[in-house]
Design a protein around this nucleic acid. Structure first.
Lengths: 128, 128
DNA sequence: GTTTTATATCTACAGATGTAGTTTCATAGC
DNA sequence: GCTATGAAACTACATCTGTAGATATAAAAC
């Protein structure tokens, strides 16, 4: 499933906040930038069309929508294709780039060293 | 400067191989998938319009194009906005995701530990 | 000098995307 | 029951993107 930027942004709202009605989603997005209700509703309609959102129930004529796909299921191919596109699928240049260009604290570094070490142990186990 | 997927793909060819003519670019891309010459040329035209490519000289009526922007200058904002979009701008969930979902060898892990250690030392220096 | 060939240029189009106005209509409030 | 309100549904549109056919033309080949 391929989502546009805006569609993905709306999905994030559902992943963060759970099931919502269209007016509620509009309110969340509109807090950050000016956007018409019908614009948000169009995106919701398209997400429903793509079966990324489903109708869970109604309050009167107001519809409660819920995410029908997980964040991970979408992120995974997105990250993969992004690394493919920018770094030829290799993690080394990705990490090089991030360490060089993205701001990081010493705590972030310590955290990354920790999870890297876990990964190393896991790979060593699997080797046997 | 915002480039489409295909436009970025063509830029990669220039970054990898240096200056090229349109037929040469077409040949490179066509090795990987079926695409008409005029399709590739349209993308080159659009890249010229966006000033990502420049005409360097001509051989007869054939034009030699060259990249007018660096890979880094485009990758940097792309990576940054991607991390922003998927991981709220935090490197930790990015690394978590990559370590979990992307395939990596023990050598990759060792390499990452190495550059992380360099990063740690650099940050510690700067702290003082 | 004419023909052939290759390249540039031009034109076109369908589908995706972000955007929002308009219309319909169910329900809430009176 | 009537009216007002708010939400859904519908329609519209400019721009971007991938795609490529058609046309013009310079240079190469003969």
């Amino acid at each position: 499933m391929k989502l546009s930027d805006f569609e993905f942004e709306v999905m994030q709202v559902f992943w963060d906040q759970g099931s919502l009605t269209a007016p509620e989603v509009h309110k969340v997005i509109a807090e950050q930038r000016k956007v018409a209700y019908s614009t948000v509703k169009t995106i919701i309609d398209r997400l429903e069309e793509k079966q990324a959102l489903v109708r869970e129930r109604t309050y009167g004529r107001t519809i409660l929508y819920g995410a029908a796909v997980t964040r991970e299921s979408l992120s995974k191919p997105m990250v993969h294709s992004f690394i493919g596109k920018l770094f030829g699928g290799n993690v080394r240049p990705l990490f090089n780039h991030v360490l060089k260009e993205e701001s990081m604290s010493l705590e972030d570094v310590a955290y990354l060293q920790e999870i890297l070490d876990q990964k190393r142990r896991k790979l060593e186990e699997e080797k046997e």
